[in-house]
Amino acid sequence: MAKLAFLGLGVMGGPMAGHLQAAGHEVTVYNRTAARAKDWVSRHGGQMAETPREAAEGAEFVMACVGNDDDLRQVCTGQDGAFAGMGQGAIFVDHTTVSAAVTRDLAQIAAEAGIGYIDAPISGGQAGAENGQLSVMCGGEQSDFDKAQPVIDSYAKICRLMGPVGSGQMTKMCNQIAIAGLVQGLSESLAFAEKAGLDVEKVVEVISQGAAGSWQMVNRHKTMAAREFEHGFAVDWMRKDLGICLAAADEIGASLPVTALVDQFYKDVQKMGGSRWDTSSLIARLDR
């Protein structure tokens, strides 16, 4: 069992930290909104801290799951940042989806302080976090990964080292690129079935057993058909992620025409008032 800190208790971070506490680790949490940290402690036990630095003091591992590049820099650096409280040999594990550039910058700062750094973005959504069934894709040194993996396994279905620092974030980009085109294709398929007068449930029952089957189809077709989007991964966050993907594609010379198109479709959903809708809300565009 380890002494841990967890920074960020949103819909993903809160359940993940809960799994760590349930596994018997000694967990101290920090959240920008202190009331959420107090609520987490009342439900799970453990302790809360007023700053990332306080949470990280004496911790063997510090996990973070915050919003974006700026949020991550804020909890890592500065007088009250986690790095200031971490000792040499401690390992920082970042579960936020951020740019590979900020990952490499922070990893360099950490290395200069004798701190290990693993970028470990996650996939599986809120349900995956709550059920401890996340896919975790990591970048970093093998020795740091070997130490951190048993801790990460508390909420992971699969956890793999993909390469050096930044490789986890690049792998997460592959994940988001694949999802973007898939959800658009599923949206068009379901909308087409509706226009054709077919029974959508029967259509999905048949085609999900063949080459068209996917997690999105199995888990989202009912809510998509009902136009229910108040759950899951928000459109605003997906656009943030796709922006990271498109910027990285420009940097490495990759072509992402479908991803760029779907990003604009999500922009349409935002204009429809769907900023906080689930990413499956792409089907709503097709009703216009």
Rank of each mutant, 00 (worst) to 15 (best):
Q216A: 13
D119H: 07
V204H: 00
I158E: 04
R239Y: 03
Q142A: 08
M173F: 06
A127F: 05
I115A: 05
A193T: 14
S189F: 13
K172A: 04
G232Y: 02
A212E: 06
A129G: 02
E194H: 08
A193S: 11
E130T: 01
G163N: 05
Q169W: 01
I152P: 07
Y117C: 06
R220Y: 14
Y155A: 01
S214D: 00
A127M: 06
G213V: 15
N219Y: 00
G116I: 05
E194D: 02
M224I: 12
G213P: 14
D146G: 02
G163F: 08
Q108L: 11
S135V: 08
I179K: 09
A156M: 00
F192T: 12
A196N: 04
I158G: 01
G124K: 07
Q216S: 10
E228G: 10
L186I: 15
G132H: 03
R239K: 12
G210T: 03
L134H: 03
D241R: 10
F145Q: 15
V151Y: 02
L190V: 10
A180Q: 04
P164C: 00
M162N: 06
A196W: 08
G163C: 07
V151S: 02
L161P: 14
G116P: 05
Q176L: 10
K147I: 12
S187I: 09
V165D: 08
S143Y: 14
T171I: 12
F145S: 15
R220W: 10
G114N: 05
M162W: 04
A226V: 09
M170D: 12
Q133W: 13
Q149N: 12
A107I: 00
A111F: 09
A193M: 12
A127P: 01
Q176G: 03
V235G: 04
E130D: 04
C174T: 14
G139K: 04
H231F: 15
A180Y: 04
V165N: 11
A211N: 10
A148M: 13
L161I: 12
D236H: 06
H231V: 11
V235F: 07
A127I: 13
Q209P: 00
Q216E: 10
Q216G: 09
W237I: 13
K195W: 10
D236N: 07
R227W: 01
T171K: 11
Q133H: 11
A156V: 03
A211I: 13
A129T: 00
G128V: 09
K157R: 15
Y117K: 05
S143L: 14
A110V: 10
Q133M: 10
G185M: 01
Q108V: 10
S154M: 05
N131F: 11
G166P: 04
E141W: 13
Q108I: 02
C138W: 05
K222R: 13
P150Y: 08
A178G: 08
A178H: 01
L161Q: 15
D153Y: 13
M170A: 08
V235N: 08
L161E: 14
K195P: 09
R220T: 09
G140K: 15
D236K: 08
D153H: 09
R227P: 06
A225W: 02
M137I: 09
V203W: 01
H231A: 12
V206W: 07
E201F: 00
S123P: 00
